[in-house]
């Protein structure tokens, strides 16, 4: 039992409950259906990104270029839709964005797997490169009159609950996040490829000796993250009803923080989908709801920083205590 409570997931869950209680007791609106749906809506995009980042971190790498891939895919797709097929249904937009994301992800994969370059360096480079190329060659103006399919999608609802004033909507894009989480969960836990990702993060050399095709695994990882990022970017634009080439980029540290809070270790080999979902919720609650108890927007960044420090510091201290406890029991 005590082992369950010492797990990272439990720690994050307890933090979420405590934070919710503190906010909710001071401002009951927090526990309203409307606010709950808002929180879920805010988790959609960061949740999709987080699933990709989780895979990269488990494999022992890091990707910071996914936001650039996301905005690149969003902006390009919006332009393509507007110019060539203004009447295409929304799923076509998602397919195009996914394909663009996949293509950009493969550029990362090529440098990482083929030339064995450090993942941080490669993705730092491509972050700048993709974003710069987007602004220079594809466009730097905000597109506000998005194609009708995107506009419609933004207004659709999965669940609609009438309230005293207005209605609370749960946006169907939450299903995209749920699907991404499910796919990544199945991939990580039930396929040899997924176990290979854990193995690679645990020990690259041992993974090679065991017969895993490490470059192929890396190709998969970075291409798949690109694909997810394309979908996430498109989702972002569909929710916002605009394609702004300056959006999304800048979110990367929040996403990485959510994944790390959820128990994934930057040294690789460790991380779970459940933990990541909890990490995303924690970051979203901290950044959306602190305003409800009068914490000014600028202070929210400080609070998120604190949560990251405490959230990643506590498990580290616990681990050290556990190691010392082990020595004592000799």
């Amino acid at each position: 039992m005590s082992k369950i409570f010492r797990s990272n997931e439990a720690l994050v869950a307890v933090t979420i409950v405590l934070l919710s209680l503190v906010i909710g007791l001071n401002n009951p609106t927090f526990f309203s259906v409307g606010n709950l749906f808002d929180l879920l809506r805010s988790s959609i995009v960061i949740g999709i990104f987080a699933m990709g980042v989780l895979i990269v971190i488990i494999s022992g790498g890091i990707d910071v270029s996914f936001t650039a891939i996301g905005v690149f895919a969003l902006y390009s797709t919006t332009r393509i839709l507007k110019e060539f097929m203004p009447d295409a249904p929304i799923w076509v937009g998602f397919m195009i964005a996914a394909a663009i994301g996949l293509g950009l992800g493969m550029i990362n994969a090529f440098f990482i797997a083929r030339f064995k370059l450090p993942t941080l360096i490669v993705t730092l480079g491509t972050l700048s490169m993709f974003h710069g190329f987007l602004l220079f060659a594809i466009g730097n103006q905000i597109i506000r009159d998005v194609p009708p399919a995107m506009d419609q999608f933004a207004r659709s609802a999965l669940v609609r609950i009438p309230l005293e004033r207005g209605v609370a909507n749960l946006h169907p894009a939450i299903l995209i996040t749920a699907a991404a989480a499910l796919i990544v969960w199945l991939l990580l836990n039930f396929t040899m490829l997924g176990r290979g990702i854990y193995a690679l993060g645990g020990s690259r050399e041992a993974a090679e000796r065991a017969g895993f095709n490490v470059p192929r695994i890396q190709y998969f990882i970075y291409s798949f993250v690109g694909l997810l990022s394309g979908v996430a970017g498109m989702t972002f634009g569909s929710l916002a009803r605009q394609a702004n080439p300056q959006d999304i980029v800048g979110m990367e540290l929040n996403v990485i923080a959510a994944v790390v809070l959820g128990g994934a270790q930057l040294t690789g080999g460790r991380g779970t989908v459940i933990g990541t979902i909890l990490g995303v919720l924690l970051v979203v609650i901290a950044s959306n709801s602190l305003i409800l108890i009068g914490v000014p927007a600028v202070w929210q960044r400080v609070v998120i920083g604190l949560i990251i420090l405490i959230g990643t510091g506590l498990p580290a201290i616990q681990a050290r205590r556990a190691a010392q406890g082990g020595m004592r029991s000799i």
């Binding site: 176990r195 193995a199 645990g202 050399e205 041992a206 000796r209 080999g269």
Partner: peptide, 12 residues
């Protein structure tokens, strides 16, 4: 160095 994966279980 045994070529084991420290992060995986004994069974795996």
């Amino acid at each position: 160095d045994f070529s084991l994966f420290p992060n995986l279980t004994v069974a795996e």
